[in-house]
Amino acid sequence: MADVAALAGVSGQTVSRVANNRTNVDATTRARVRAAMRELGYRPNGAARALRSGAFHGIGVIVFELSTFGTTRTLDAIATAATERGYAVNLMPVLDINQRAVTAAFNRLSAQAVDGVIILIEAYLLDEAGVQLPHGLPVVVVDSSAHYDYPVVDTDQFQGAGQATGHLLDLGHRTVWHVGGPVTSYPAAHRRRGWEQTLFDHRREVPPVLFGDWTAPSGYEAGRRLAADPAVTAIFAANDQMALGVLRALHEAGRAVPGEVSVVGFDDMEESAHFWPPLTTIRQSFSALGQHSVESLLEAIAAGGPQPAPISVPTQLIVRASTGHKNG
């Protein structure tokens, strides 16, 4: 900064004002200082600013299972929301969910200067590992349980499953079969409960669940078993990728969709409108999920601690050609 001041013929205080975009510098002086900065390759020191202000304008995200659709879309939404608010995102994947791994991720993020942390780990993995989240940084938990004294932000998985199941019952189907997500998954568990509760509320038979792993191949295997049962006329898959596998299995078995079997997915991934037939599904707003997650964390940062106020993002039923009235 002293070199810039000497080259521009101004005081160090003036250089500081220009570097921090203060308005009390005339245009000519500002231009001369910026020219000196360019010539000398000067850049303001963000770490020094953070030490002075106590704010790093950085958010850490601890995540498990980077490859899943929901995780990648949620990460994208968090990054977008953070950038719009002037925050950088530091991603910290953990390969194993246990107390040591999560604590180590916290410690690494603390060393890299972040103001708070968003945890994106499916709940049962987190809970069963007996993880106690370390103190010292504001935290928001996404897609997890409410067993922590931190804000929890999630899509209303229960509501979405109820919308999917109710839609199929309204079309005249006697009951609805379910291809569920992994038994360790919090979102999958709540979708399963929403499906089950809707059938109970309508006093319908609750068929056994066929579990998949979120992938199209697992949906295909479940779909083959369901396609072989002529009593199956309606299927709710816990995500669109498994629904895609179900559609293939039904097609191979010669069972028309939606003429003989109606299928509903969950997520409304971009490709769902281009399945054949186009997939009826439950849309979750990943952009809203990301915005609420970041806003909750910034509120916790501003308050100097956690603000335990769970947020549930509503879902929307998107009706396409994969569902129809039951024949006969």
Results as ranks from 00 to 15, higher is better:
190 H>N: 14
57 H>R: 15
292 H>W: 01
291 Q>D: 13
16 S>M: 07
324 G>W: 06
91 L>C: 03
158 F>I: 03
33 V>Q: 01
222 A>Q: 10
289 L>Y: 00
205 E>F: 12
54 G>F: 08
214 W>Q: 05
203 R>L: 09
203 R>G: 11
62 I>E: 05
61 V>P: 00
267 D>F: 09
241 Q>K: 08
112 Q>C: 07
146 A>C: 07
22 R>I: 00
63 V>W: 01
88 A>D: 13
167 H>F: 04
82 A>M: 05
140 V>K: 01
5 A>D: 05
103 T>V: 08
236 F>P: 02
318 I>G: 05
94 V>W: 10
109 L>N: 11
301 I>Y: 03
310 P>M: 11
88 A>G: 14
138 P>M: 10
291 Q>A: 12
66 L>V: 14
224 R>M: 12
7 L>W: 00
266 F>T: 01
45 N>C: 06
69 F>A: 14
162 G>Y: 00
282 I>D: 02
1 M>L: 10
181 G>Q: 06
64 F>N: 10
228 A>V: 08
71 T>M: 13
200 F>K: 14
173 H>L: 09
146 A>I: 08
202 H>S: 14
229 D>V: 07
234 A>P: 02
233 T>P: 03
98 N>D: 15
4 V>N: 02
86 G>F: 10
265 G>E: 05
82 A>K: 02
201 D>H: 08
98 N>P: 01
169 L>K: 04
168 L>A: 07
314 P>C: 04
235 I>H: 01
299 E>Q: 11
285 S>I: 04
33 V>W: 00
20 N>G: 06
277 P>K: 12
209 V>L: 11
156 D>T: 04
186 Y>A: 13
104 A>Y: 00
113 A>R: 15
328 G>E: 13
161 A>E: 05
58 G>C: 14
90 N>L: 14
25 V>F: 01
272 S>H: 05
149 D>E: 14
7 L>V: 02
305 G>W: 07
297 L>W: 01
275 F>D: 02
51 L>P: 07
168 L>W: 00
1 M>T: 08
258 P>Q: 10
192 R>K: 12
107 N>D: 15
83 T>E: 14
295 E>R: 06
134 P>H: 06
305 G>I: 07
188 A>L: 08
168 L>S: 02
